[in-house]
Computed example of a mutant assay.
Amino acid sequence: MVKACILGCSGLELTHREAEFFRRERPLGFILFGRNIDNPEQVKRLVADLKASAGHPNVLILIDQEGGRVQRLKSPHWPAYPAAGTFARVSNDIYEQRELVRLSARLMAADLYELGINVDCAPVLDVPLPGGHDIVGDRGYGFDAETVAVMGRATCEGLLAGGVLPVIKHLPGHGRAVADSHHALPVVTATRQELEAVDFLPFEVNADMPLGMTAHIVYDAYERKHPATTSRKMIRLIRQKIGFDGLLLTDDLSMNALSGTMTDRVKAARAAGCDVMLHCNGKMEEMEAVVAHSPRLRGIAQKRFEAAWARLNKRIEPVNIDEARLRLQQALSRIDKSSPRRTDPTEAFADTSLAAMRELGGV
């Protein structure tokens, strides 16, 4: 019996208590954060131990490796990658942008694949809009839905080619949120017409992807009480209107946007229709509540998982890593010389992104 939950762990190696707990409860998978990462050999050992402790063959190992501000694997052991919003500053040619986005994702997949990590919680398909909180900012690929849709798909393709499953997030759209859902519950007041024309479009274009993640956001045009993660109406919208039929993960259940006990949160997300409960902070007492109330992986959720697992390439796309890194570095270096700075919601993060780019070839 596999539990439909993904859990964290507390440090660089499993404690005896964690290993016993995971062996007993058999979670579907695990997610890694900075607290779990030191060097490549240590990460490989931890990943192997996590997979062994789960007690079943098809264990998902997740990580947030977007580039820019959000990347758990960092220098000096791993290259730094540019934020999603950087690529538009490299070239005005959307076809070149798309090529570079895919190339960057393919290189990130190579890093993850080497460690045994098989899921990247990317791409961000949120469209950052004026007035929105900067939690998205340069994590978004652009400021119009079409660009985000195209570049998000390029990221998915690059990850899949490298043997890593993408997770489209945050369904059905985080770009209008005026608060960070890590700390508070955002309420989006846009009309249905606005949401359907902009926010939903990138997810509709990428609805065939294997994994998706919900947003802890209230969309009061549809549902005034519950955030999407715990709203039957919004999960139905994700399934029927947006058309996503992949395995649907909650965003982290320990985030402060959600209310109630951990038991309350799991029960609400499960009742709303989420397939898999995601809990990230590695706190044992909270994980005990998560697994106690997470469903077994069965029925339609089991079929969705099997379909997602089948998308993992048995033979990954060949790539010359050194040549690919050089190609990306050369393209990104043009930003200093020819790309005008844009006045947009990601402006505050441009310097951080540039610093990341300059490290790209240094590993």
Score class of each variant (00 low, 15 high):
6 I>V: 15
7 L>V: 07
8 G>H: 04
13 E>H: 15
15 T>V: 05
31 I>V: 15
31 I>C: 05
38 D>M: 08
41 E>H: 15
42 Q>V: 15
44 K>Y: 04
46 L>K: 02
54 A>Y: 01
54 A>M: 06
62 L>A: 12
80 A>Y: 09
81 Y>E: 03
91 S>H: 06
91 S>M: 04
96 E>W: 15
97 Q>R: 11
106 R>S: 15
106 R>F: 10
109 A>C: 03
110 A>V: 01
128 P>E: 00
129 L>W: 03
131 G>P: 07
136 V>F: 10
137 G>W: 04
145 A>E: 15
175 G>C: 07
181 S>K: 03
182 H>M: 09
186 P>H: 03
194 E>S: 09
195 L>I: 14
198 V>N: 00
199 D>C: 11
205 V>L: 09
209 M>Y: 10
215 A>K: 07
221 A>P: 13
233 K>S: 13
233 K>A: 13
235 I>K: 02
239 R>D: 00
244 F>P: 01
245 D>T: 15
253 L>M: 14
266 V>K: 00
275 D>R: 11
282 G>F: 07
283 K>A: 08
283 K>Q: 12
287 M>Y: 09
288 E>C: 10
302 Q>G: 02
302 Q>P: 02
306 E>P: 10
309 W>G: 06
314 K>E: 02
315 R>A: 14
337 K>S: 12
337 K>L: 13
344 D>W: 06
354 L>W: 11
355 A>Y: 11
357 M>Y: 08
361 G>T: 15
363 V>P: 10
